[in-house]
């Protein structure tokens, strides 16, 4: 009886801690996932699944070394799976949209942003991932390497290659 009560208390504590992490990080993770798969519904599912996975893992084995890093890796992996499923279903390229703005002064910037997002589609999956992790989540090379499970050398060379590719692709469009 006492053992059951202790177990319930422990489960509640885990739920509280995961819930706190959810409120702190979920929206940023959904935004990151949107940049990776360009589908808000799927992005939300991926992030919810990542948190549920963290909750399961925490309950069974205790907290991971870094819950934030665990979530980031889960989201990236979830997005990869979602992309694989989508590629299998529709062999179509994802197109980005940029929210419309009315101010004329921002028109040129909007155009360039749209171009960046369109060119992002033409990068490799890994190049896209490192750019999102670097420029949206502001992760450093170490954190990106840990998220993607690659070496830091790979991260820096992939970022450098991605930026060069992006520049070249944007140049092609001019």
């Amino acid at each position: 009886m006492q053992e059951n009560a202790a177990r319930t208390r422990a489960a509640d504590t885990v739920s509280e801690m995961v819930s706190e992490l959810f409120h702190r990080h979920a929206r940023m993770l959904v935004r990151s996932a949107v940049l990776l798969i360009d589908d808000e519904g799927a992005a939300e599912e991926v992030v919810q699944e990542a948190f549920l996975g963290l909750h399961r893992r925490w309950t069974k084995k205790g907290p991971p070394d870094s819950p934030e890093a665990y979530l980031r890796t889960s989201v990236v992996n979830g997005c990869r799976s979602a992309m694989r499923r989508r590629r299998a279903a529709v062999r179509a390229r994802v197109h980005h949209r940029v929210p419309e703005g009315s101010a004329e002064t921002t028109a040129m910037l909007r155009h360039e942003q749209a171009e960046v997002l369109a060119c992002l589609d033409r990068l490799t999956r890994r190049q896209r991932e490192v750019l999102v992790l670097r420029y949206f989540l502001d992760l450093d090379d170490h954190q990106i390497a840990a998220t993607l499970r690659v070496s830091r050398g790979t991260v820096s060379s992939t970022i450098s290659r991605a930026l060069r590719s992006l520049e070249a692709l944007m140049g092609e469009n001019r």
């Binding site: 959904v30 909007r110 960046v116």
Partner: peptide
Amino acid sequence: AAFRDRTTDVPAPVEP
């Protein structure tokens, strides 16, 4: 800026 603006309207997900 492109990343920020593309996702600025994305709402927080529903908590499980």
